[in-house]
C-alpha cells in the first residue's frame, strides 16, 4: 500500500512550462551583461620607412610646434615645461593663430607638430600627448564646420566637405626618432 502511494506521487510531472521563461531570462541576462568587445583606438598612419631622417631644420621655426617628452614623462613644449592638460589649447592657438602673433604658425596649413620622446617615456603618456594633439585638430575641424556649414563635423558628412576642412587644417604630425636616456 505504502509502495503504491509513492508511485502515485512520482507520476506527477514537474511543470515544465516555466522552463522556457527561465531559459529566456538567462539568455537575456547574458545578452545584457556581455559587451562585445569592439576595438577602439587612435588611428594613425605611419610614414613610409626611409633611411634618412626628415630634416625639419629647413622649416621656419615659427611653423614648428615641438613637443618633447622625457623619460620622467614631463613635457617640454617649444622650450617651456607644460602640463598635458594645457597642451590642447596651446596647440589650437598655435595652429589657428587667431591674433596673428609673430611666433605662432603663419597659416594653419603650414603648421607642423613635431613629437619627440625618449625610449623611457611611458606609452600612456605618449598616447595622451598624441591624443591631445589630435583633439586640438578635431576641435578646429568642428569649429570650422560649424562656422561654414552650421553642422557638426562627423564621418557622415560628404567627403568633399570633409576634405575641404581637412585641407584647411591638415593634420601633420612628425615623429622624430626617440632619444635614449632613460630606458630601463
Amino acid at each position: 500500500m505504502a509502495k503504491k502511494s509513492v508511485k502515485d506521487r512520482m507520476s506527477n510531472e514537474i511543470n515544465a512550462g516555466s522552463m522556457a521563461d527561465i531559459a529566456f531570462l538567462l539568455l537575456i541576462f547574458f545578452l545584457v551583461t556581455t559587451t562585445i568587445d569592439v576595438d577602439k583606438g587612435v588611428l594613425v598612419k605611419l610614414p613610409p620607412w626611409s633611411d634618412e631622417e626628415p630634416d625639419i631644420t629647413k622649416l621656419k621655426k615659427r611653423n614648428v610646434f615641438s613637443v618633447l617628452v622625457n623619460a620622467q614623462n614631463q613635457l617640454l613644449v617649444r622650450g617651456e615645461p607644460t602640463r598635458v592638460d594645457e597642451l590642447k589649447d596651446r596647440t589650437k592657438e598655435f595652429i589657428a593663430n587667431p591674433q596673428r602673433k609673430e611666433d605662432l604658425s603663419e597659416a594653419p596649413n603650414k603648421a607642423i607638430i613635431s613629437l619627440k620622446n625618449d625610449r623611457g617615456t611611458k606609452y600612456g603618456t605618449y598616447l595622451e600627448v598624441y591624443n591631445e594633439v589630435k583633439a586640438a585638430y578635431s576641435e578646429l575641424w568642428e569649429e570650422e564646420c560649424q562656422r561654414k556649414y552650421g553642422q557638426a563635423y562627423s564621418e557622415d558628412l560628404p567627403l568633399a566637405i570633409r576634405k575641404e576642412i581637412r585641407a584647411k587644417f591638415p593634420l601633420v604630425i612628425s615623429e622624430a626618432e626617440p632619444t635614449n636616456f632613460g630606458e630601463e
Binding site: D39, K40, G41, V42, L43, V44, K45, L46, P47, P48, W49, R119, L127, Y130, N131, E177, P178
Partner: peptide, 19 residues
Amino acid sequence: QDVKTKLRKSNQLRVNYSA
C-alpha cells in the same frame, strides 16, 4: 618604437593605438 619601426619597414602603415 622598435615595433613601429619594424611595421614601417614592412610597409604596414595603418596602425591603431588601441585605447
